[in-house]
Design a protein around this nucleic acid. Structure first.
Lengths: 353, 353
DNA sequence: ATGAAAGCGCTAACAC
DNA sequence: GTGTTAGCGCTTTCAT
């Protein structure tokens, strides 16, 4: 069915060497020959067997993708951009998922190594449990780009400037007249969580506002795997709900709460409604990410829109450089900034004092 | 670095043939020899080169995945389940995205064919624009399972029983005392949309209720690609919003509206809020899918939870059969049923008449 | 029950 | 400039 180079060469009355030179764009072919062959080639509709190429060259022109942790729509958007960027360069994507456990990660790495991928991109909100597998890869000079900051791993990464983003949101809230500002994060000490905390604290300090430790709230995540056949990522919503209740139980409450994500802010709004707390009147809120639902939340969310697609594209570009053997500046960190989106969840406080 | 079968055979003092027989579980090996070799093998940590296997056998043990249309969280959940099911059988996933255009689909098919995938799974809410490429595949007896009903294509598929589901929701609403029931769908004549319409109409008829044509609303989808680096699927929310306004403009309105999706119902609620229409008091609503946000909507949504993971698993199982050469019952349709989830968006109507 | 050898379709090194 | 050839690591057929 599919023609081989051998057959094509015979059919055109040339040698396989010449045919290969035409295919690979080598200059060592007479222009007239090249033209004649190229024409015939497109008529025949020949395209080389990628598997054989892979065996021969040791390069498969594939990129492995590891998605860690819960399913999130943002991963989908990144993956789409990654596919597009990779495709334009002749690369395909091999997709793997890890549940976030150390074994899950090991399985992904093993699968991708056995598939002989030329490079890897790690994404997802989960943290790396066991970096041993990854360290081995890095030592072997296999390109590995993380779309997330990974403190435990010295590798290239593409990250969002979370300290700046949370500083920006803090400044925005302050500009609205708020002085009593809270922060709601999950209780996991991820690199991003620490960065977010710092972003808020620094902005508060820069504005001469005190940091109320009680309001820098950390709430445990209740992960709930529902039926065995379902993976629903409701944990962030739930965390926002739980956090809201903790804030409501305080004798003195902030007038604005910066949330870890849009889901958190939406969960917070849910609790606010059930407790007759007005948003943004009694508590202003900001989300983070600008998921599609943010615009249609009970009170539309002021939030930071993530450059999901660009994160993916930059990751591919960086990985490409490594795969071409250019290891200058390793480990490199590409930092991107999100965009403030103003909606109704964060307005000026009711005049209190 | 990686050992080859040749090297391993030499090292163990056996022939490559015998080694291969051990590896492939052939019975033509003396038990003692087999044991000795297996032990040595696991010590060495040898694993065969998948690329070379692929070249030799013509089977790559890979499944191609085509995601069509906008990024949705449900695709992510399916993909995760597909990966798990495939991995357990020694298969890997090659991921491609189509923007929903005919060219996008052609590119995906070409990419996967050039990668020599053993089978394909098509998923996503978009419809197939041009089925010519796919028809070619099917004719060539390449396994192709669609996780969606594709009217224009005779192939295996795994689908949700939408007529039943929408009938079920209709019966649920009727049981709550509603008699004036509307349906809100996008204006695209997809197989699912037609099925949903029929499900509602049949249930209404079965209950002896008249079908009000004006209330079987079809609303155009406003697709909005925001910045070039973003793919945000807000179209479904927007459609719900638009649809709500149309309902509100009617002189006589239904007391309950069945929506195409949770996003649609959430968009509807948004419009209801802005127009001071009480949900569920003045209009009860049902969603569809049970996305994570459904539980945390302004009014938590009564909806139908999709068996996303099972859809993926069943697709892999069916594809597996085809890849093994078992074409019995082609084209086969696997039908799965979603589960009714009761929340607050759909209660009994305010007593009218 | 085991060993030897011939390719799968391609690339790269070497001849002419 | 062009043709020839030797493998990449594996599976499969044929011999023993």
């Amino acid at each position: 069915m599919e023609l081989t180079q051998h057959e094509v060469a015979d059919r055109l009355g040339i040698s396989r060497g010449t045919l290969h030179r035409v295919l690979s764009g080598s200059p060592l072919v007479k222009a007239s020959t090249r033209q004649r062959i190229e024409k015939a080639l497109s008529e025949i509709g020949y395209s080389p067997n990628i598997i054989a190429q892979g065996l021969r060259t040791g390069r498969t022109r594939t990129i492995g993708l590891i998605a860690i942790g819960d399913a999130k729509i943002s991963e989908m958007e990144k993956a789409r951009a990654i596919h597009e960027a990779a495709r334009l360069r002749g690369y395909s994507l091999v997709l793997t998922y890890s549940d976030g456990s150390a074994e899950g990660e090991a399985r992904c790495v093993d699968e991708l190594r056995s598939r002989k991928v030329d490079g890897l991109i790690v994404t997802g909100k989960g943290r790396l449990q066991d970096s041993a597998h990854f360290k081995k890869l890095i030592k072997a000079r296999v390109g590995l780009v993380a779309i997330a900051p990974i403190a435990t791993l010295e590798t290239d990464c593409v990250v969002v400037d979370a300290p700046w983003a949370y500083g920006e949101m803090t400044r925005h809230i302050i500009s609205k007249g708020h002085r009593d500002i809270g922060l709601l994060l999950e209780d996991i000490q991820s690199t991003y969580a620490i960065a977010k905390e710092k972003g808020v604290a620094d902005a508060l300090a820069a504005a001469g506002l005190p940091v109320n430790k009680d309001w820098m709230l950390r709430v445990p995540v209740r992960v709930r795997r529902e039926e065995a056949d379902k993976v629903r990522s409701v944990s962030d919503y739930r965390m926002g709900y739980d956090g809201a209740l903790k804030f409501f139980a305080m004798s003195r409450r902030p007038t604005a709460v910066i949330c870890q994500s849009d889901q958190t802010a939406i969960g917070f709004q849910h609790a606010a409604k059930l407790n007759n707390v007005d948003v943004p009147g009694e508590v202003a809120l900001t989300g983070y990410d600008d998921i599609p639902a943010a615009e249609f939340a009970r009170v539309p969310l002021t939030t930071m829109r993530q450059p999901e697609a660009e994160l993916g594209v930059r990751a591919v570009e960086l990985l490409m450089r490594r795969m071409e053997g250019d290891w200058s500046g390793f480990p490199q960190m590409v930092v991107l900034r999100p965009t403030l989106i103003e909606r109704e969840s964060c307005s000026r406080p009711k005049s209190e004092t």
